[in-house]
Protein backbone atom coordinates (compact mmCIF):
# COMPACT_ATOMS: atom_id res chain seq x y z
CA UNK A 1 0.00 0.00 0.00
CA UNK A 2 2.83 2.34 0.95
CA UNK A 3 4.66 1.40 -2.25
CA UNK A 4 1.53 2.27 -4.20
CA UNK A 5 1.31 5.67 -2.53
CA UNK A 6 4.95 6.45 -3.27
CA UNK A 7 4.75 5.21 -6.88
CA UNK A 8 1.55 7.18 -7.39
CA UNK A 9 3.00 10.36 -5.95
CA UNK A 10 6.50 10.45 -7.35
CA UNK A 11 6.07 8.87 -10.78
CA UNK A 12 3.31 9.20 -13.33
CA UNK A 13 3.03 5.48 -14.01
CA UNK A 14 -0.46 5.32 -12.53
CA UNK A 15 -1.80 8.21 -14.60
CA UNK A 16 -2.98 6.12 -17.59
CA UNK A 17 -4.83 3.82 -15.19
CA UNK A 18 -6.49 6.76 -13.52
CA UNK A 19 -7.56 8.19 -16.86
CA UNK A 20 -9.00 4.86 -17.97
CA UNK A 21 -10.94 4.45 -14.75
CA UNK A 22 -12.13 8.04 -14.62
CA UNK A 23 -15.24 7.02 -16.50
CA UNK A 24 -16.29 4.82 -13.58
CA UNK A 25 -16.67 7.70 -11.17
CA UNK A 26 -18.72 10.03 -13.35
CA UNK A 27 -22.05 8.34 -12.46
CA UNK A 28 -21.43 9.06 -8.78
CA UNK A 29 -21.09 12.76 -9.43
CA UNK A 30 -24.13 12.67 -11.68
CA UNK A 31 -26.15 11.03 -8.91
CA UNK A 32 -25.07 13.53 -6.29
CA UNK A 33 -25.90 16.33 -8.69
CA UNK A 34 -29.53 15.25 -8.93
CA UNK A 35 -30.83 17.35 -6.00
CA UNK A 36 -29.20 20.43 -7.52
CA UNK A 37 -30.80 19.67 -10.86
CA UNK A 38 -34.21 19.16 -9.29
CA UNK A 39 -33.79 22.48 -7.54
CA UNK A 40 -32.88 24.21 -10.81
CA UNK A 41 -35.85 22.60 -12.51
CA UNK A 42 -38.14 23.71 -9.69
CA UNK A 43 -36.86 27.27 -9.96
CA UNK A 44 -37.39 27.26 -13.72
CA UNK A 45 -40.82 25.68 -13.63
CA UNK A 46 -42.60 27.21 -10.67
CA UNK A 47 -41.99 30.85 -11.30
CA UNK A 48 -44.59 33.56 -11.62
CA UNK A 49 -45.00 35.62 -14.75
CA UNK A 50 -44.44 38.79 -12.74
CA UNK A 51 -41.04 37.54 -11.58
CA UNK A 52 -40.11 36.58 -15.12
CA UNK A 53 -41.10 40.01 -16.33
CA UNK A 54 -38.97 41.72 -13.71
CA UNK A 55 -36.03 39.49 -14.57
CA UNK A 56 -36.55 40.15 -18.25
CA UNK A 57 -36.50 43.91 -17.66
CA UNK A 58 -33.32 43.66 -15.63
CA UNK A 59 -31.65 41.53 -18.30
CA UNK A 60 -32.65 43.95 -21.04
CA UNK A 61 -31.16 46.85 -19.11
CA UNK A 62 -28.00 44.88 -18.54
CA UNK A 63 -27.80 43.95 -22.21
CA UNK A 64 -28.11 47.60 -23.16
CA UNK A 65 -25.26 48.57 -20.87
CA UNK A 66 -23.08 45.79 -22.23
CA UNK A 67 -23.86 46.72 -25.82
CA UNK A 68 -22.81 50.29 -25.14
CA UNK A 69 -19.53 49.02 -23.73
CA UNK A 70 -19.12 46.71 -26.72
CA UNK A 71 -19.45 49.63 -29.15
CA UNK A 72 -16.48 51.28 -27.51
CA UNK A 73 -14.66 47.98 -27.46
CA UNK A 74 -14.95 47.57 -31.22
CA UNK A 75 -13.20 50.86 -31.91
CA UNK A 76 -10.63 50.16 -29.20
CA UNK A 77 -9.95 46.74 -30.69
CA UNK A 78 -9.47 48.24 -34.14
CA UNK A 79 -7.11 50.84 -32.70
CA UNK A 80 -5.24 48.14 -30.85
CA UNK A 81 -4.78 46.17 -34.07
CA UNK A 82 -3.44 49.26 -35.87
CA UNK A 83 -1.01 49.97 -33.05
CA UNK A 84 0.13 46.38 -33.04
CA UNK A 85 0.77 46.58 -36.76
CA UNK A 86 2.92 49.63 -36.13
CA UNK A 87 4.80 47.61 -33.53
CA UNK A 88 5.22 44.74 -35.96
CA UNK A 89 3.40 42.46 -33.56
CA UNK A 90 0.95 39.65 -34.08
CA UNK A 91 -2.71 40.37 -34.58
CA UNK A 92 -5.62 40.14 -32.17
CA UNK A 93 -7.03 36.70 -31.87
CA UNK A 94 -10.47 35.63 -30.92
CA UNK A 95 -10.85 33.07 -28.20
CA UNK A 96 -13.58 30.51 -28.46
CA UNK A 97 -15.42 29.32 -25.41
CA UNK A 98 -17.57 26.38 -24.55
CA UNK A 99 -20.06 26.59 -21.72
CA UNK A 100 -19.71 23.88 -19.09
CA UNK A 101 -21.70 23.11 -16.03
CA UNK A 102 -20.33 22.21 -12.65
CA UNK A 103 -21.47 18.77 -11.52
CA UNK A 104 -19.38 18.16 -8.45
CA UNK A 105 -16.89 19.50 -5.94
CA UNK A 106 -13.87 17.53 -4.80
CA UNK A 107 -14.68 16.07 -1.38
CA UNK A 108 -11.09 16.45 -0.21
CA UNK A 109 -11.03 19.64 1.89
CA UNK A 110 -7.32 20.20 1.25
CA UNK A 111 -7.69 20.43 -2.51
CA UNK A 112 -9.68 22.90 -4.52
CA UNK A 113 -11.01 20.96 -7.48
CA UNK A 114 -14.36 20.87 -9.20
CA UNK A 115 -15.83 18.40 -11.68
CA UNK A 116 -17.51 19.68 -14.84
CA UNK A 117 -19.75 17.99 -17.40
CA UNK A 118 -17.44 18.30 -20.41
CA UNK A 119 -14.82 15.81 -21.52
CA UNK A 120 -12.84 14.64 -24.52
CA UNK A 121 -16.14 14.20 -26.38
CA UNK A 122 -16.62 17.98 -26.26
CA UNK A 123 -13.00 18.74 -27.08
CA UNK A 124 -11.82 19.52 -23.55
CA UNK A 125 -8.11 18.91 -23.04
CA UNK A 126 -5.59 18.80 -20.23
CA UNK A 127 -4.30 22.25 -19.32
CA UNK A 128 -7.29 24.06 -20.76
CA UNK A 129 -8.06 27.40 -19.06
CA UNK A 130 -11.43 27.73 -17.33
CA UNK A 131 -13.27 31.01 -16.71
CA UNK A 132 -16.44 32.09 -15.04
CA UNK A 133 -18.32 35.33 -15.67
CA UNK A 134 -16.01 37.30 -13.39
CA UNK A 135 -12.53 36.03 -14.04
CA UNK A 136 -10.15 33.13 -14.38
CA UNK A 137 -11.07 30.08 -12.35
CA UNK A 138 -8.42 27.50 -13.06
CA UNK A 139 -7.37 24.82 -15.50
CA UNK A 140 -8.44 21.34 -16.52
CA UNK A 141 -6.16 18.68 -15.03
CA UNK A 142 -7.93 15.40 -15.76
CA UNK A 143 -10.14 14.66 -18.72
CA UNK A 144 -12.59 11.80 -18.96
CA UNK A 145 -14.93 11.11 -21.83
CA UNK A 146 -17.87 13.11 -20.52
CA UNK A 147 -16.48 14.87 -17.47
CA UNK A 148 -13.27 16.49 -16.37
CA UNK A 149 -11.61 17.84 -13.25
CA UNK A 150 -10.65 21.48 -12.89
CA UNK A 151 -7.94 22.66 -10.52
CA UNK A 152 -8.90 26.07 -9.11
CA UNK A 153 -6.37 28.90 -8.90
CA UNK A 154 -6.73 28.93 -5.10
CA UNK A 155 -5.42 25.37 -4.72
CA UNK A 156 -2.12 25.28 -2.86
CA UNK A 157 -0.42 23.45 -5.73
CA UNK A 158 -1.46 26.00 -8.36
CA UNK A 159 0.33 29.10 -9.57
CA UNK A 160 -0.43 31.45 -12.43
CA UNK A 161 1.65 34.17 -14.11
CA UNK A 162 -0.10 37.54 -13.75
CA UNK A 163 0.59 41.21 -14.34
CA UNK A 164 -0.74 44.31 -12.70
CA UNK A 165 -3.27 45.84 -15.07
CA UNK A 166 -2.28 49.40 -14.12
CA UNK A 167 1.40 49.24 -14.99
CA UNK A 168 2.25 45.78 -16.32
CA UNK A 169 4.40 44.61 -13.41
CA UNK A 170 4.68 40.84 -13.67
CA UNK A 171 4.38 38.35 -10.84
CA UNK A 172 3.35 34.82 -10.02
CA UNK A 173 0.11 34.36 -8.10
CA UNK A 174 0.10 31.24 -5.98
CA UNK A 175 -2.88 29.53 -4.43
CA UNK A 176 -2.78 29.38 -0.66
CA UNK A 177 -5.35 26.68 0.00
CA UNK A 178 -7.70 29.42 1.14
CA UNK A 179 -10.56 30.05 -1.25
CA UNK A 180 -10.41 33.83 -0.88
CA UNK A 181 -6.75 34.57 -1.20
CA UNK A 182 -3.80 34.19 -3.52
CA UNK A 183 -0.32 35.30 -2.63
CA UNK A 184 2.19 36.86 -4.99
CA UNK A 185 5.58 35.26 -5.02
CA UNK A 186 8.92 37.06 -4.98
CA UNK A 187 7.73 40.65 -5.34
CA UNK A 188 10.67 42.89 -4.54
CA UNK A 189 10.24 45.58 -1.93
CA UNK A 190 10.30 48.56 -4.29
CA UNK A 191 7.71 47.21 -6.73
CA UNK A 192 4.87 49.54 -7.59
CA UNK A 193 1.89 47.54 -6.42
CA UNK A 194 -0.88 48.63 -4.11
CA UNK A 195 -4.15 47.48 -2.65
CA UNK A 196 -6.95 47.68 -5.22
CA UNK A 197 -4.77 46.83 -8.22
CA UNK A 198 -6.31 44.41 -10.69
CA UNK A 199 -4.17 41.43 -11.61
CA UNK A 200 -4.75 40.00 -15.07
CA UNK A 201 -3.28 36.88 -16.63
CA UNK A 202 -0.03 37.74 -18.41
CA UNK A 203 0.03 34.89 -20.90
CA UNK A 204 3.59 33.94 -19.96
CA UNK A 205 3.91 30.21 -19.64
CA UNK A 206 1.54 29.88 -22.57
CA UNK A 207 -1.11 28.12 -20.59
CA UNK A 208 -3.56 30.91 -19.87
CA UNK A 209 -4.57 33.49 -22.48
CA UNK A 210 -3.56 37.11 -21.85
CA UNK A 211 -5.75 39.67 -20.23
CA UNK A 212 -8.34 37.82 -18.21
CA UNK A 213 -8.89 39.20 -14.71
CA UNK A 214 -7.45 36.91 -12.05
CA UNK A 215 -7.49 38.71 -8.73
CA UNK A 216 -7.61 42.03 -6.96
CA UNK A 217 -4.84 43.01 -4.58
CA UNK A 218 -6.22 43.22 -1.06
CA UNK A 219 -3.21 44.00 1.02
CA UNK A 220 0.46 44.79 0.57
CA UNK A 221 2.71 44.40 3.58
CA UNK A 222 6.21 45.88 3.54
CA UNK A 223 8.17 44.14 6.24
CA UNK A 224 11.75 45.49 6.36
CA UNK A 225 12.88 42.18 7.84
CA UNK A 226 11.84 40.26 4.78
CA UNK A 227 13.41 40.21 1.34
CA UNK A 228 10.10 40.39 -0.50
CA UNK A 229 6.71 42.03 -0.15
CA UNK A 230 3.81 40.05 1.20
CA UNK A 231 1.00 40.60 -1.28
CA UNK A 232 -2.42 39.08 -0.68
CA UNK A 233 -4.95 39.13 -3.52
CA UNK A 234 -8.54 38.03 -3.75
CA UNK A 235 -9.63 35.96 -6.78
CA UNK A 236 -12.12 37.73 -9.04
CA UNK A 237 -13.86 34.52 -10.09
CA UNK A 238 -16.50 33.26 -7.70
CA UNK A 239 -14.69 30.04 -7.04
CA UNK A 240 -17.25 28.59 -4.66
CA UNK A 241 -20.42 29.92 -6.25
CA UNK A 242 -20.27 29.78 -10.04
CA UNK A 243 -22.18 26.89 -11.52
CA UNK A 244 -21.69 27.77 -15.18
CA UNK A 245 -18.12 27.91 -16.38
CA UNK A 246 -16.45 28.67 -19.70
CA UNK A 247 -13.80 26.46 -21.25
CA UNK A 248 -11.46 28.56 -23.38
CA UNK A 249 -10.09 27.36 -26.71
CA UNK A 250 -7.30 29.39 -28.21
CA UNK A 251 -7.75 30.03 -31.92
CA UNK A 252 -5.69 27.06 -33.03
CA UNK A 253 -7.95 24.51 -31.32
CA UNK A 254 -11.17 26.09 -32.49
CA UNK A 255 -11.83 24.10 -35.63
CA UNK A 256 -12.82 20.88 -33.93
CA UNK A 257 -15.15 22.21 -31.27
CA UNK A 258 -18.85 21.66 -31.79
CA UNK A 259 -21.19 24.16 -30.16
CA UNK A 260 -18.49 26.59 -29.14
CA UNK A 261 -19.17 30.31 -29.02
CA UNK A 262 -16.77 32.94 -30.14
CA UNK A 263 -15.86 35.74 -27.84
CA UNK A 264 -13.76 38.80 -28.51
CA UNK A 265 -10.92 38.60 -26.07
CA UNK A 266 -7.39 39.48 -25.38
CA UNK A 267 -4.50 39.51 -27.79
CA UNK A 268 -1.98 36.73 -28.03
CA UNK A 269 1.51 37.33 -26.85
CA UNK A 270 3.61 39.67 -28.87
CA UNK A 271 5.85 37.81 -31.22
CA UNK A 272 9.12 39.36 -32.27
CA UNK A 273 9.66 37.49 -35.51
CA UNK A 274 8.49 39.46 -38.49
CA UNK A 275 7.09 36.41 -40.26
CA UNK A 276 4.26 36.19 -37.78
CA UNK A 277 3.44 39.86 -38.06
CA UNK A 278 0.24 39.24 -39.93
CA UNK A 279 -1.32 42.32 -41.40
CA UNK A 280 -4.97 43.17 -41.28
CA UNK A 281 -7.39 43.33 -38.40
CA UNK A 282 -10.00 40.86 -37.33
Amino acid sequence: MMVLVVVGLYTDRLEPLREKLAQLVTPFYQITDVPGRVNDWRKDTFVSQADLKIENEALKTELLIHQRKLQQLASLAAENVRLRQLLNASQMLQDTVLIAELIGVSPNPLSHKVIINRGTKDGAFKGQPVLDAFGLMGQVIEVGETSSTVLLISDSTHAIPVQVNRNGVRAIAEGTGDLNSLSLRHVSANTDIRAGDLLVSSGLGERFPVGYPVAEVLQVVRDPGKAFLTVIAQPMARLDRSRHLLLVFADRDKASVPGALSLPAAATSISSSSSSAVSGGR
Binding site: M2, L4, V25
Partner: peptide
Amino acid sequence: FQDLLEGVPFGQHSL
Protein backbone atom coordinates in the same frame (compact mmCIF):
# COMPACT_ATOMS: atom_id res chain seq x y z
CA PHE B 1 -12.01 3.11 -5.66
CA GLN B 2 -12.65 5.82 -3.10
CA ASP B 3 -9.27 7.38 -3.99
CA LEU B 4 -10.27 7.37 -7.63
CA LEU B 5 -13.65 8.84 -6.79
CA GLU B 6 -12.29 11.66 -4.69
CA GLY B 7 -9.30 12.33 -6.94
CA VAL B 8 -6.69 11.86 -4.21
CA PRO B 9 -3.40 9.95 -4.60
CA PHE B 10 -3.92 6.19 -5.01
CA GLY B 11 -3.58 4.36 -1.73
CA GLN B 12 -4.57 7.15 0.63
CA HIS B 13 -7.91 5.76 1.70
CA SER B 14 -6.94 2.10 1.37
CA LEU B 15 -4.02 2.70 3.72
